[in-house]
Design a protein around this nucleic acid. Structure first.
Lengths: 233, 233
DNA sequence: GCCCGGAGGTGTACGGCGTACACCTAGTGG
DNA sequence: CCACTAGGTGTACGCCGTACACCTCCGGGC
């Protein structure tokens, strides 16, 4: 059915349109509803048609990651390595936050695409340009881990609180009695933002806290010309 | 069919046997082959029988995580907070390494189980016992992120290299020309371990490198009585 | 001795998934 | 004019999780 109902002809699909449709679908219906069938329907086409543009679902997911990575700003130049990298990572973070499903998909990919390698390569290059030794750069990339993408695994996924303040208070009392330490820091976080109780922390603050801790640590090692020789067993 | 072929009676299932069978199945056939159907077959039972012991597959996965968390050593006492936490996290790491699929499952759980909360609560308690303020403890937990589990997201999943050294060298040349920076650190890593080329880094070293960088950073903040008040926007 | 309730196991069925394979069709270059 | 091909179709298969109705024992109360 190349003809539309009104007789006009649907523009033929291509890989790019497929990938962007998949991203859009994930954005507004959740990544779990990105199935070949749903996506095909969204594009007004039969499921098997998609296979003319992507080899299989894995490749579709890889492509979706590439679309997100494409939204990351290019590196700023004219600054020191630390703020350049900081900015780049925070840009990645913004891109990922626009597509809340994306970090899950990134983590699920068994091997990086060329586009992903491009991004990682450029981050490595920024450390090298900042004078980091190959050795230190290597370990530093590992230490960043998924933080180069601008996300940290949430330990306490923010589950929506019950509406009723009474049951909410009861839930908190139970939490406090079994997990006093967790309750304590949850309280502190809540107090920080003036909300009554719980319901999440300031993600942005937490992310930058950890990022800066690492970057400062890297900086120290770099200044004192750290090398893995000394520390190896 | 409660009777076995030899006439003896199969011991009735229970939640624990189901969970341990699931872990065993994941261990030796990969987590992707843990389906209700496969698991049931492994237990000599019909798929629907499992639903008498776990509510659904999600709960099965939660239970599998609990089994792994149960393998983590209890906290050592009689040492300073830093080495106590370090040891505990490295114990978690060993548990997870025994079940290579487990970190993926842990990451996929939308909300923590009671057992998981117990573990996290006790880690928080260890920081508190070390004299950390509630405030600092909170941010420090975020900074650790998935590292409290003893894993970091691998940026370059080690894909098996081609056998033939010639095609291997060719692959590496291509890598080097498109991703010079990555090639450089890959070379360094390979050189470190005397292997010819690539094929992974010393995971244990990388993990402890990052962990100690963080713990030392925490230590500094703690000593200088850091508080989030000063740094908040 | 009887019954009955519930725990544990069974069988069938449904709707969803990814995708192999054979097919059709419209447009293009020779 | 015709063969080729890129793009789209239709059917079918084997997985998946699980709802629902059922059966079959076993133990406890009468």
């Amino acid at each position: 059915m190349v003809q539309q109902l009104d007789g006009t002809r649907r523009a033929p699909l291509n890989r790019d349109r497929v990938l962007h449709a998949a991203v859009a679908l994930a954005d507004h219906s959740g990544v779990e509803s990105v199935s070949m069938r749903n996506l095909a329907q969204e594009l007004g086409v039969v499921p098997m048609a998609l296979y003319k543009h992507v080899a299989n679902k894995e490749e579709l997911l890889d492509g979706m990651v590439d679309v997100i990575v494409g939204e990351i700003d290019p590196p700023a130049d004219g600054t020191d390595w630390k703020s350049a990298i900081r900015q780049r990572i925070l840009s990645a973070r913004r891109a990922l936050l626009r597509h809340p499903w994306s970090w899950r998909v990134i983590e699920s990919r068994p091997k990086p695409t060329l586009v992903v390698l491009d991004y990682l390569n450029s981050i490595v290059g920024m450390f090298r340009a900042g004078g980091f030794s190959v050795d230190l750069t290597h370990h530093v990339m590992h230490a960043l881990g998924s933080r180069v993408w601008g996300f940290t695994q949430e330990l306490f996924p923010a589950s929506p609180l019950p509406e009723d303040p009474e049951t909410q208070a009861a839930a908190f009392r139970e939490l406090a009695s079994r997990y006093p330490h967790i309750a304590e820091i949850a309280m502190a976080a809540a107090h920080d933002q003036g909300s009554v109780v719980g319901q999440g922390c300031d993600d942005e603050f937490e992310f930058e806290f950890a990022l800066d801790l690492l970057l400062d640590g890297f900086d120290n090692l770099h200044r004192q010309e750290w090398t893995s020789r000394g520390t190896r067993s």
